[in-house]
Design a binder for these strands. Structure first.
Length: 301
DNA sequence: TAGCCATAGTCTCGTGTGTA
DNA sequence: TACACACGAGACTATGGCTA
């Protein structure tokens, strides 16, 4: 086998979004850890971390490097997620990971991250990728069973109850994996699926954000006319054109007196008759904004 | 011609950094 | 001090190419 760097996949195996829970003897289930995907290589004591796009992240997560350095193995290629586990909430908090990703150096006293492993690609001289996922997971458990700062994502055999547990505790969702599946790059497979927990609500679309004469996104407010974010996912060209026509029929010269910083640099077309939009999103951010909003429907257009 | 797949492009998130 | 910009990941739409 060649150098570990040469064995990295072009992109890590990624789960495909779905709405249904796969059921059958060949399926296993894991909690979806909300963090950033990291591949880790250990080559005779030398630890390297790589992002989904194979950017070097070794210096960004020194605590993960330190934890991996304690493993008594000459050569490993591992796949997992770096997360910040909030002790009071009892679940990962993605915002903390974003903070670390945006910073170029790690301050002393910075929150400590955990490396949650869910796959192994190389073990010594053995290429593990062709083995069934169940075998790879077993091997992973053996390797990192009691290593501080590292854990192996538990594998459950009952999907519905794990989904209910995750939903109740505010986790991001679950991942379903075919136990007999090999490791394949990207999404060129039908072996890993994810089902995400989302909040669905009705919001008022009070304005359109216009860029180069086209509708870019909707400005959304709650029922007390507070700004809760902007949304563009779910808008296709046909809907954007209809929205533009609607704005022409129902223009308003007056918008909010104080604009959120998010909107100050945008060209806005305020609506005299706001539209009711059904929107789904992952969670509320700390400042009351929707995270990853997606429009399901808009009444009246 | 329809359906599938891959790829490109767009948008959003929060914070650090650089500049006026 | 205020503002603009960049960063990486994820999710989605649009588009073009290929195949049956």
């Amino acid at each position: 086998m060649g150098h570990l760097r040469e064995l990295l996949p072009k992109e890590p195996m990624a789960p495909i979004s779905t709405e249904k829970i796969e059921i059958g003897d060949d399926w296993g289930y894991q909690l979806k850890w909300d963090g950033v995907r990291i591949l880790a290589g250990i080559d005779h004591g030398q630890v390297s971390l790589y992002s989904r796009k194979l950017l070097d992240k070794t210096t960004l997560y020194p605590e993960v490097v330190a934890a991996l350095s304690t493993l008594q193995h000459d050569r490993l290629l591992l796949d997992g997620e770096v997360v910040y586990f909030h002790p009071e909430l009892g679940r990962p908090v993605f915002q903390k990971v974003l903070q670390r990703e945006r910073s170029r150096s790690v301050r002393s006293g910075a929150p400590l991250f955990t490396y949650v492993l869910f796959d192994i690609l190389v073990d010594g001289d053995k290429d593990m990728r062709k083995l069934p996922y169940l075998d790879r997971h077993h091997r992973l458990k053996e390797i990192v069973s009691t290593t501080p700062g590292i854990l192996t994502a538990d594998l459950f055999l009952e999907g519905e109850s794990l989904w209910a547990w995750a939903e109740e505790r505010g986790w991001e969702g679950i991942v379903m994996k075919r136990l007999s599946s090999p490791y394949r790059e990207g999404k060129k497979h039908r072996d890993w699926y994810k089902k995400k927990i989302a909040i669905t609500m009705q919001a008022e679309a009070v304005a359109l954000i216009i860029r180069e004469g086209r509708v870019a996104s909707l400005v959304l407010a709650d029922d007390e006319n507070n700004y809760i974010g902007r949304a563009s996912l779910g808008l296709n060209e046909q809907t954007k054109q209809r929205l533009l026509e609607y704005a022409g029929l129902h223009p308003s010269g007056a918008g909010w007196k104080t604009l959120h910083a998010d909107l100050k640099k945008e060209q806005l077309a305020w609506l005299s008759k706001p539209l009711t939009a059904t929107v789904t999103f992952l969670e509320w951010s700390q400042d009351g904004m929707m995270r990853h909003p997606k429009l399901l429907s808009i009444e009246g257009v």
